[in-house]
Design a protein around this nucleic acid. Structure first.
Length: 1085
RNA sequence: GCUCGAGUGGUGGAAUUGGUAGACACGCAAGACUUAAAAUCUUGUGUCCACUUGGACGUGCGGGUUCAAGUCCCGCCUCGAGUACCA
């Protein structure tokens, strides 16, 4: 075998690596660790195109490089396998998303395996695997059970907060969360659990609340802010509207400042840091309260809210305030609007609420608003300031209200100009007649105590004055919103949450994971509940919770187990009835209470339960052991209509096997003894029916929402460290050993999603003591997209003929994408094109020089553009080694670059040339002699350059350097083993298969992955001479070989002596000669 | 609009701290081998002028700093990405 044959070599080595578990890694405290991570893919049905593996190749090269340097390298791979496409596919076809996902993963794995990656597949994780999402659920529980203590600036156990409330109320608590009214310890302790838990919701880091959400009707789910682009959904491009919904959220805002500060500690690109900074959107200023008055009528002091709070970054312009604007949704609007303005305001509010997010955005230039009739009082001048509403003020930012300074803010200026409101100028010597002056330079004027001050000083002084007056404080605001955490979807992690009395509780750790139930359809229910509400028999058996801190004996809760045998199939109705029943238990009628006293606690020899749901009905009392139902009837049951209903109901219950005993209220009050006897008579003593007793719990409704895609991806890098642990999300020792990800490679599209959320969860887990670091990724590289090169044919609109691109200007044509496989070097294969599609079978062409030349354009790779290049065909034709090298050779990793298949030959040539270095006359032949000085120089120069290049992640230049080395050694006719061994160790990260093969041929019995990275010896590069470029006035004229032993003075003399110098100088004497040793000589004339 | 990147031959790109601009490769051209093509090999290839030696110009445009600028500074243009009423 004298020719390089990748088809023989590559499968052989891939099998060998697999059989020998070459890339399996274990914790080894004797070695320094290095963690190289790729963003794990969503396994889409389309499979991989050449753009996908780009980042994986780079990370694989780096992992192999670090291994050769002696590091213990963790380099895992897995799948982000929950997500929309599999679910959409399930909706269309009925195929379970788990099956689709499994198939796609298989295809992905096949494709990945071809490329020769060094992943440790024994550590694979999948977010949709219950063994994995068990821990996603567990982490959610920790978040739910935490609050953010501002004083210690970290997340803490919610129990600590409860302890504080019990002891001293919430007056001194400094927490991140919604403001709640101040309460004392006494008040807290008298509240029932429901009240207490609803207060705690305001503090928890995972909380349930009515929030304005991005609702996407087409997808039937809410979306996070980062999933919405330009007012439409990122996936699918469906319109999104604002809706108030009860949703789970994560209090990421608590971490806003730390997420911002943390950016300084990590090595991310400027643009990515900038994106995160903007997303967090910190702005400093002041919060100020303005007193409100209604001008038209005398208001009741106790009724009217007495101030509007605003946030401003320019408190220095407070004297320029000439009106105020509230968001149309602002809660104060309805309270302050005067009767005269009511109609106009309501009309405006309605109009604003009908506008979708997108309309609102595209309507930026339309200035709209309405006057409330109310006035605020300027805190310093006492002037009356009209209060308006306008949709340019957002309810969700700051306080939802602004103090408008038309002279200093363009939007305020536009608004004032449009509605004819005053524009007082508060800047010295600035013309504001044409537009506002938003610069933070210049001096403040017409502003009382701020006159003549620079902006910066004026801000300080203004805040001071505001604080002194007690009307506000200096304040920092963030644009970052809490992250909506629930999705109305099937294919995601179920929440470890159940509801009892409408209060959410966490499911016990012992019962995790909460696995996805089967459903008949992957669509919402008819009532708009998420798909999980379709699941049958999906309950949680919870311990009986008492609703009050000190339950009285009167209030004991009798929830039946047993009733599940008689439930309706409609889960939703079932739970609604159960809620009713629960209410009924609390509000028993007088007669019901009397009966309860008679039958409770198995007084009559069997157990009765109150208010049980049986089929579609609620029975007042039931004994499951006797199959007896007691109905305590009031007067209403005398009405004919009710009697018909009762009869129907009795019939149904009889069908179910119950005996129904109707007891009149009157009898209860007058003949209680008789009634009790009657009940006794109807009791059976030996029943084989289940009683439900002793099962230790009640059935409760599960949470029907699922978690968003980012839940599983926020912590997967931790699970790789200990992927099979069943007792912890990962063991502390292993987390401590592998620690932070040293190099993370992936797309920049996750800048404000995944990369922010995983930083958030990492900080959280750090706060709660589970991990020792608080940033997940030390260094991040965003690989640029590989763009496709589309080919076009041009069809004449009139004749329908296809016009070669050089002649299109003579015709009126439309461009059509042609499949790139039909085009070679822009020349269309006409016969193949005719066969491509039935409609082109008889196509006619207008050629140039006998050829059809296609047009081309660089665009995103996509099926619809027929410009997709899959790695499979390239691996088949050239081999994985060539593909790997070529993808790197294409250009810098971070850069966007067009895919161009032409260059791949060059890289393939290089590998063949390398192969030839090891072979002469058709057989393998390397010399063991002492290498030549020249060859050693080539080798060491190459070691130095490649090591430096890899250390700065310059993957493309490494390939060039290897090419140069091979070219030089070919020139030198070098087949020296020492030299060539060095070269293939350097090459191995890029082209592992060919390197292994040659390594083996040399006679090594181990894998080249165990070879040590060669060390650079500077002595090998020491030169006796240096060829100085000699320039005159900075322009290089000639080169001069001089001994390196010369000092600068001597170099100067040599240069000036040289004949060409004399020629160029033409007798003039140089003003100055600059000599930079071993660099350059510059003669200044 | 704002923020951040980027702009170098026909093409992808190299030039790491200011020190020989265009490495490496593609493409193209000529030649060798061949009946021929493919493959392979050799040579040339920034532009313009002289075409042998050589000279001028040249890193988006205009200025500046420097012995020396693709690289640093100021102003502008174009493209890309992010963001968008954030008070």
């Amino acid at each position: 075998m004298s020719e390089y044959n990748h088809r023989a070599i590559e499968p052989k080595w891939r099998k060998s690596w697999k059989d020998n578990e070459t890339y399996k890694v274990t914790e080894d405290t004797n070695k320094e660790k290095f963690y190289v991570l790729d963003m794990f893919p969503y396994p889409s049905g389309a499979g991989l195109h050449v753009g996908h593996p780009l980042g994986y190749i780079a990370s694989d090269i780096y992992a192999r490089y670090k291994r050769a340097q002696g590091y213990n390298v963790l380099h895992p791979m897995g799948y982000d396998s929950f997500g929309l496409p599999a679910e959409q596919y399930a909706i269309q076809t009925g195929q379970h998303p788990a099956i689709t996902t499994e198939k796609n993963i298989e295809r992905y794995r096949d494709q990945l395996d071809q490329i020769g990656f060094s992943f440790d597949w024994s550590r694979e994780v999948r977010t949709s695997d219950p063994k994995y999402y068990k821990w996603t659920q567990w982490i959610f529980k920790q978040v739910f059970n935490s609050w953010y203590n501002k004083s210690t600036d970290k997340a803490e156990n919610i129990e600590d907060l409860v302890a504080i409330f019990e002891k001293e109320g919430n007056a001194k608590v400094n927490a991140v969360g919604e403001e709640t009214t101040v309460f004392s310890a006494e008040e807290w302790n008298t509240w029932d659990i429901k009240k207490q838990r609803s207060i705690l919701m305001n503090y928890r880091l995972a909380y349930l609340a009515d929030s304005w959400v991005n609702w996407c009707p087409a997808l039937g789910t809410v979306l996070a802010n980062d999933e919405v682009k330009d007012g439409v959904s990122e996936r699918g491009g469906h319109p999104v509207e604002q809706k108030l919904m009860r949703q789970w959220s994560m209090r990421i805002t608590a971490y806003a400042e730390r997420l911002l500060q943390g950016l300084d500690k990590i090595d991310f690109s400027d643009s990515l840091k900038e994106q995160q900074k903007n997303w967090i959107g910190k702005s400093q200023g002041a919060s100020v309260k303005f007193e409100v008055r209604c001008s038209m009528f005398e208001v009741d002091e106790s009724q009217t809210p007495n101030h509007i709070e605003v946030f401003t970054t320019r408190p220095d312009t407070i004297f320029g305030v000439s009106f105020m604007v509230l968001a149309p949704e602002h809660p104060l609007v309805n309270l302050i609007t005067t009767p005269e303005q009511k109609e106009a305001i309501e009309a405006y509010q309605k109009q604003a609420s009908l506008k979708s997010e997108r309309d609102r955005q595209s309507d930026v230039k339309n200035i709209t608003g309405a006057f409330t009739g109310a006035y605020a009082i300027h805190p310093f001048t006492g002037n009356k300031i009209p209060v308006w509403i306008g949709d340019y003020v957002l309810a969700s930012y700051g306080t939802g209200a602004v103090m408008a300074v038309p002279s200093g803010d363009q939007r305020d200026w536009d608004f004032a100009t449009h509605f004819g409101i005053d524009i007082p100028n508060v800047f010295e010597g600035v013309d504001i007649s044409k537009s506002a002056y938003a610069e933070k330079e210049g001096l403040i004027a017409n502003s009382d105590f701020l006159n003549g001050l620079k902006v910066k000083d004026a801000i300080k002084k203004a805040i001071h004055a505001i604080e002194e007056k007690g009307i506000g404080t200096g304040k920092t605001n963030y644009r970052l919103r809490d992250a909506i955490f629930s999705r109305q979807r099937y294919w995601g992690e179920p929440f470890p949450v159940y509801y009892q009395d409408e209060i959410p509780y966490l499911i016990d750790d012992a019962d995790l994971p909460v696995t996805l139930p089967e459903v008949d359809k992957y669509l919402p229910t008819e009532d708009g509940e998420p798909p999980l509400a379709r699941a049958e028999n999906w309950f949680y058996k919870a311990d009986v919770k008492s609703t009050s801190p000190q339950p009285s004996p009167e209030d004991d809760v009798e929830e039946g187990s047993g009733e599940e045998f008689y439930k309706t199939t409609d889960v939703k109705t079932w739970f609604r009835l159960k809620e009713f029943a629960r209410e009924n238990r609390k509000n028993q009628t007088h007669c019901e209470k009397i009966i309860w006293q008679e039958v409770r606690g198995s007084k009559l020899g069997c157990r009765f339960r109150r208010q049980q749901v049986i089929d579609n009905y609620i029975a007042d009392f039931v004994s499951f052991s006797s199959m007896l139902i007691l109905e305590i009837d009031g007067e209403i049951h005398n009405r004919p209509s009710q009697q018909i209903y009762d009869a129907k109901r009795t019939q149904k219950l009889n069908e179910l096997g119950f005996n129904v005993l109707r007891i009149d209220n009157k009898d209860v009050l007058e003949n209680l003894d008789e009634v009790v006897e009657k009940i006794k008579a109807n009791l059976k003593t030996n029943s084989s029916l289940p009683t439900g007793e002793g099962k230790g719990g009640v059935e409760t409704r599960m949470e029907f929402n699922t978690m968003p895609g980012w839940a599983g991806s926020s912590w997967y890098f931790l699970r790789y460290m200990d992927p099979h642990n069943e007792n912890e999300f990962a063991s502390k020792d292993k987390i401590e050993y592998w620690n932070q990800v040293d190099l993370y490679i992936g797309g920049a599209e996750h800048a404000t999603g995944h990369l922010l959320y995983s930083r958030f969860w990492t900080k959280f887990l750090h706060d709660r003591g589970f991990i020792s670091f608080d940033e997940p990724f030390k260094k991040l590289i965003n690989q640029g997209m590989i763009l496709g090169r589309s080919s076009f044919v041009y069809r004449d609109k009139k004749s329908g003929k296809f016009i070669s691109s050089g002649k299109v200007s003579e015709f009126d044509t439309i461009a059509i994408h042609a499949d790139i496989s039909l085009v070679d070097n822009d020349v269309l294969d006409i016969e193949a094109f005719k066969n491509w599609r039935e409609e082109y079978k008889d196509a006619e062409f207008i050629l140039e020089d006998g050829k059809y030349i296609c047009g081309h354009e660089v665009e995103k790779m996509s099926k619809s553009k027929y410009n997709v290049q899959t790695p499979d065909e390239l691996v088949e034709k050239f081999g994985a080694d060539t593909l790997r090298c070529y993808e790197m050779f294409l250009g810098p990793l971070e850069q966007f670059k067009p895919w161009d298949v032409k260059g791949i030959n060059g890289v393939n040539n290089f590998l063949r040339k390398l192969w030839r270095l090891f072979h002469q006359g058709g057989s393998f032949n390397v010399s063991k002699e002492v290498p030549s000085k020249e060859a050693l120089k080539t080798l060491h120069k190459t070691i130095k350059k490649i090591t430096e290049d890899l250390d700065r992640y310059s993957f493309n230049t490494v390939v060039s350097t290897l090419m140069i080395a091979v070219n030089e050694l070919t020139e030198q006719k070098c087949n020296n083993q020492n030299i060539l061994e060095g070269i293939i160790i350097l090459l191995a990260p890029y082209a592992p298969h060919i390197s292994e093969e040659l390594w083996e041929k040399i006679g090594h019995t181990n894998s080249i992955t165990q070879a040590n990275w060669p060390t650079f010896d500077p002595a090998m590069l020491v030169e006796d001479d240096f060829e100085y470029p000699v320039s005159f006035n900075g322009k290089m004229k000639f080169k001069l070989l001089l001994p390196t032993s010369l000092n600068p003075k001597e170099v100067e003399e040599e240069v000036l002596k040289f004949e060409k110098t004399i020629q160029i100088l033409e007798g003039k004497s140089p003003k100055k000669v600059i000599v930079v040793p071993k660099k350059i000589v510059n003669v200044v004339v």
